[in-house]
Write a protein that binds this DNA or RNA. Structure first.
Lengths: 208, 208
DNA sequence: CATATTACTGAACCTCAGTCAATAACGCTA
DNA sequence: TAGCGTTATTGACTGAGGTTCAGTAATATG
């Protein structure tokens, strides 16, 4: 076996031994970063290991397989998304809604490529992967409504029924698509105008 | 080199030789069928070849690579979707819209697994793949509006502006999600009720 | 300093996409 | 019907990437 570095890699054969928590953290962080550049399944074990400066084998020590690693990365990305888009409270329900949507939109603007990768990965992925994303989306919409009091909900035309849930879910899907589209190319549409329209679209849909 | 079959392979050397058109047709048809059962990238060249009773190599003769084959399959599936959901014409715009959506919904009911696979494949796929799907979706929505006259468009609150296009696109996305969700689990919501709500959601959104 | 623990490596293995020279089925002509 | 050219079809080969596992070396513990 060659002692010297064959072609690349750290010249020193010194391994870096970290605590399991730190290592796991590093790998997840790296994974979410890479998600901004590449598609989820373009993050090969090989690339990941090379970037992290570890052997491929170690990834299998921490995450059972590639699939599990992907799940962990998406879970992490969703958590960040939910955490960052924190709500504020305002008296007018529609205004409140618009502000919440605005926070969401700002996040997408900041992390466009990563966000798009996340959405696409979730949409095209397997059951488990989608479940994680769906849960995150529900957390977002639920939170929007939690802040709005009962009176506000009434003002938005919202009540709790299967039909309402179906439509609100549809409205959330519309949000995603329109926001991605707008961030990609605003076509002269003003941010505030868009937010207002998206907010008013909710009663527009459920009251129709 | 041995002339005889070395170890395995078909005992009978009988190949089935078809015309390029028939073979291509067979492979595409098989591909769209398999799409009902598996995810797009679960349709490996190996499985496909085995199901078709041909060698792997032949697939590369007809389609340059796996990617191209996938594109061809999706193109085919989208064509079917657009072709089958043909519109009828009715005087009332909203009624017309509901009927068109109904045709679309019926198609989804009939081909649920295949349709879901198609949508997921398109959503998660690469640029080119999404372009094909987007084109199909635009054909659907465009057609809906073509049948509706200028007066009808006005009644729906539609005009031609960037904002309108953005919102209509969002409405279409909402349609997809809600329909898939409903077909998956109707939760006691009546078909006609749903269609009416989805149709009225359009003016509800654009007039909001 | 000796020993146990375990984070970590590296090489072998398997699956599957993609390549290509060889082969055989079919149409055509004599 | 036999021969011949065309080309649809094959199958073995290559390479990339995921997965396994027996072994190796840091660190903790006595």
């Amino acid at each position: 076996m060659g002692h010297m570095s064959t072609t690349s890699g750290p010249a020193t054969g010194s391994r870096i031994r970290m605590s399991p928590e730190s290592r796991r953290e590093q790998l997840l962080e790296l994974g979410t970063q890479l998600l901004s550049t590449r598609t989820l399944d373009e993050i090969s074990i090989e690339v990941l290991a090379e970037e992290a400066g570890i052997s491929r084998g170690l990834l299998y020590h921490y995450f059972g397989n590639k699939q599990e690693f992907h799940l962990a990365v998406v879970r992490r990305a969703v958590e960040q998304l939910v955490a960052i888009t924190a709500p504020r409270d305002i008296e007018d329900p529609l205004e409140q809604l618009a502000v919440s949507i605005g926070a969401y939109l700002d996040y997408v603007v900041e992390n466009y490529t990563g966000y798009v990768s996340l959405v696409r990965a979730a949409a095209g992925g397997n059951e488990e992967l989608r479940a994680i994303y769906e849960e995150g989306r529900r957390a977002l919409t639920d939170r929007i409504f939690e802040v709005t009091g009962p009176a506000g909900l009434d003002a938005l035309g919202l009540s709790d029924s299967p039909t309402m849930r179906l439509l609100v879910n549809g409205w959330a899907a519309m949000l995603e698509v329109v926001i991605i589209d707008w961030v990609h190319d605003p076509r002269g549409i003003a941010r505030e105008d868009l937010l207002g329209r998206l907010a008013r679209a909710l009663p527009g849909i459920v009251l129709a």
